[in-house]
């Protein structure tokens, strides 16, 4: 019994990944989805345009839109190859996303992953 229990414990310990950002958003749906590297920096944007950032290790903190640039520059200065993950709500007005992408471009970030959910036949039909 204890053996099985310990096996389960090991399974959960291995699979666990501590979510650095717990913001609840409705992610956009895409067909193309690539695995995001671990420890990537997170930037989340809620439907109302509130932004939270995390360098990938710590829990995300809310920031002003103007401060995204300094955050991104700081992350890139530490690791120029760092990937950024943009976790934005699908119904957020594009200007908020535009501001964040602009900050990342100015900070010379290398790649952004747009976090998404799997597009299914049902969801595609529902939208169309």
């Amino acid at each position: 019994m204890a053996d099985i229990a310990f096996l389960l414990i090991i399974f959960f310990m291995v699979t666990i990944n501590f979510e650095v950002d717990k913001t609840q958003v409705f992610l956009p749906k895409t067909t193309v989805r690539l695995e995001i590297p671990k420890k990537a920096a997170y930037i989340s944007i809620t439907e109302s345009g509130q932004i939270r950032v995390s360098g990938g290790e710590e829990i995300s903190v809310p920031v002003h839109p103007e401060d995204v640039l300094s955050f991104a520059a700081d992350v890139v200065a530490r690791d120029p190859q760092k990937e950024f993950v943009l976790k934005a709500d699908q119904s957020v007005p594009y200007r908020y996303v535009d501001g964040v992408i602009d900050s990342l471009k100015q900070a010379k970030a290398r790649v952004i992953y747009l976090l998404s959910e799997q597009e299914t036949v049902d969801s595609a039909a529902g939208e169309g």
């Binding site: 310990f6 666990i16 501590f18 690539l34 799997q118």
Partner: peptide, 24 residues
């Protein structure tokens, strides 16, 4: 062991860890 299992089960979130990449 079971207490630990319950702890890990509760804290595990199968988060969305996939997305579409966009090289700047």
């Amino acid at each position: 062991a079971f207490l630990l299992i319950i702890y890990f089960m509760v804290t595990t979130t199968f988060a969305a860890t996939r997305g579409i990449d966009f090289s700047l």
